[in-house]
Amino acid sequence: MNDWTLIIAILLPVVFAIPALAAGTGAKRWPSAMALTGTALNFILCALLYGRKAVFFAPWGGFGIDFSLKLYAFNGLILLVAAGFRCCAPCIARLSSKKSPYPAGFTRTCC
């Protein structure tokens, strides 16, 4: 049986990344807030998924090319750790970009 949580895990960062990236250069705070919220929610979702087994299968392109996702112990752990590190990055990016020689756009791409 298809577990739609796996699709949410893929789409959630995208949903937050699109408005954050689409924001003009004038927008100062809210793109960073979106990035932080997106990564934090992603981390919470990955933490909830950790330890679970789930599959999602939908026929796609034919010739064996199916949209197939599978969650098990190993990739659940990788997912959780990766989400944890992505959660740290917007905080650091927001602070370090204030005085650094780089533009502030990086914070938005952390999703």
Partner: peptide, 24 residues
Amino acid sequence: APMPFMALLPAALEKLLGIYLLTR
């Protein structure tokens, strides 16, 4: 590249993904 990029991608995520695939 920006420093948070280095901490996030080459140091953490890229290694995680590359080694994850290698293990699989």
